[in-house]
Every structure is written in structure tokens, then in C-alpha cells.
Computed example of a mutant assay.
Amino acid sequence: MTVDLPLIVVLIALGYVGLKFARVPKWLVVVLLLLGFQTAHTFIAPAVDSGTKTGVEVVNGTTK
């Protein structure tokens, strides 16, 4: 079973967990989300995408 999640879903989940359990300030979550969107339009985006896919494959146990 493979799972394909967009980066925004992962960021929202981390933001929710941070707000709920770690008591992270709301402004910090907003800044991190905005930086995530800004990073998606730079040369770093392919590395983030590749790293996310590799991490999901490791978690799912579907590495080749």
C-alpha cells in the first residue's frame, strides 16, 4: 500500500500537532506554512519532493 500526500497536507498536520501538543505559537505555524509555499517555487523544491517521497517509501516499507 502506498500513500501519496501533498506537502501542504503534511505541513497542516505538523502545524496541528504543534499547536495541540507542543504549544507552538500560532504565528510560528503561519510563518512555517508560508515558507513552505515559498520554498515550493525555488530550486530546493525537487530535493524536498524527493526527500518526502523517499521518507514515505521508508515508512511504508516499499523501498526498492
Rank of each mutant, 00 (worst) to 15 (best):
K64I: 07
L5S: 00
V24I: 10
E57P: 02
V9P: 03
T63P: 00
T2I: 09
T52Y: 00
L28Y: 07
F21G: 01
T54W: 12
M1G: 14
P6M: 02
A47S: 13
L14Q: 04
F43N: 11
K64H: 08
F37S: 02
F37P: 00
V3H: 05
M1S: 12
K53C: 10
G55E: 07
A45Y: 15
Y16I: 15
V29M: 03
A45E: 15
V3M: 13
F43Q: 15
I44S: 06
A47G: 08
P25K: 15
L14M: 06
P25D: 10
A45G: 11
G36R: 05
V48L: 09
V48D: 04
E57L: 10
Q38H: 08
L19C: 04
V29E: 08
L28Q: 06
G36M: 09
K53M: 11
G18K: 02
A13L: 10
K20Y: 11
S50L: 12
L33D: 01
T54F: 14
L14F: 00
T2C: 04
A40M: 07
D49W: 06
P25A: 13
K26L: 14
L33V: 14
F21A: 02
L28M: 11
E57K: 12
L33W: 05
F21V: 06
A47H: 12
I44A: 13
V59Y: 13
L32I: 10
T63Y: 10
M1K: 02
Y16R: 14
G18Y: 01
V10Q: 02
V30D: 05
G51K: 01
T54I: 11
I44V: 14
I8E: 13
L32W: 04
E57R: 15
G18C: 03
D49F: 04
G61Y: 06
L7P: 02
K64Y: 04
G51Y: 01
Y16V: 15
T39E: 09
V17L: 09
L11M: 14
F21M: 00
K53S: 15
N60R: 09
I44T: 06
F43Y: 14
V58I: 14
V17Y: 09
E57N: 13
V31D: 06
V30P: 05
R23V: 04
A22M: 08
F43E: 12
G51F: 02
